[in-house]
């Protein structure tokens, strides 16, 4: 399976009648088992791009080729849980075929066991985000889209969830698209980093990371980051930083 994105442009018409260009031509592809990371300043059009890729916005120029039978798991920026359904129901509604054992395992990993029967209104934002992650994982997705999934979580938990995401990505051939502000998350999780410009967004640099995820120790990660820092000062040509 392969996800191909070829957006040639996207404009918004404002209430005043003017048009604003949100996306410049953007083009990239993702393979199964690959983690692509979109990094860019806030408000650059990342969310618009995600909406187009997910098929929620059809009003754009270009095309997105997504395997039609692909199951999508998504973690939105806000958790987007159903407030009138319990935590477990929220997950099961999105993933009706999930096995009890699998669900129990997910809840254990994400430390949600005690909250199965709570309603989202009774959860902290951190917990609600974990439920959103559980929901996305429970559908056993072919395409996993994570929009700032680790924002507003404490470092220890963010680190653990990052490991969980890495485990999931390794366990099945899933195409993952991660949107983040954190270079650290990007370097730890990504196979290919796509740096976006301010609005209208275009890809200013595409940086593949050669070292497999499970062999990236702290030293390697520091080295990759140093390489990236050098690049941002110097040229922005295509080069493997590893």
């Amino acid at each position: 399976m392969r996800l191909e994105v070829e957006i040639t442009g996207k404009t918004f018409r404002s209430a005043a009648g003017g048009t604003h260009e949100v996306l410049a031509p953007v083009r990239f592809a993702l393979q199964s088992g690959e983690v692509g990371v979109l990094i860019g300043p806030s408000g650059c059009g990342k969310s618009t791009m995600l909406r187009i890729i997910l098929g929620l916005d059809h009003d754009f120029a270009g095309r997105v080729a997504r395997p039609p039978e692909a199951r999508i798991g998504m973690v939105f920026q806000e958790p987007r849980l159903l407030p009138w359904r319990s935590v477990e129901q929220n997950v099961r509604l999105a993933a009706p075929d999930v096995a009890d054992a699998k669900l129990a395992e997910l809840f254990k990993i994400l430390e949600l066991e005690a909250h199965r029967n709570h309603y989202p209104g009774e959860l902290s934002l951190g917990l609600a985000r974990r439920v959103a992650l559980a929901r996305a994982f429970a559908v056993e997705p072919d395409i996993l889209v994570l929009d700032e999934p680790l924002a507003s979580l404490d470092d220890a938990l963010a680190g653990r969830l990052r490991d969980e995401i890495a485990t999931l990505v390794a366990s099945r051939p899933v195409m993952t698209l991660l949107v983040t502000h954190s270079l650290d998350d990007a370097v730890r999780l990504g196979d290919r980093l796509l740096f976006l410009s301010p609005r209208p967004a275009r890809i200013v640099a595409e940086v593949p990371i050669g070292i497999p995820r499970d062999r990236r120790g702290e030293a390697e990660i520091a080295a990759i980051k140093a390489g990236l820092a050098q690049r941002t000062q110097g040229d922005r040509t295509e080069r493997d930083v590893s």
């Binding site: 997910l54 998504m74 806000e78 159903l82 129901q89 509604l93 999105a94 993933a95 889209v145």
Partner: peptide, 23 residues
């Protein structure tokens, strides 16, 4: 935003109506 969630997770129409819209 909840409609979008239901659509991304490919919830069948009736399930989305019953659990997302009706409440």
């Amino acid at each position: 935003s909840l409609d979008e969630m239901a659509s991304v997770f490919a919830m069948p129409r009736w399930r989305a109506f019953r659990h997302v819209v009706l409440p």
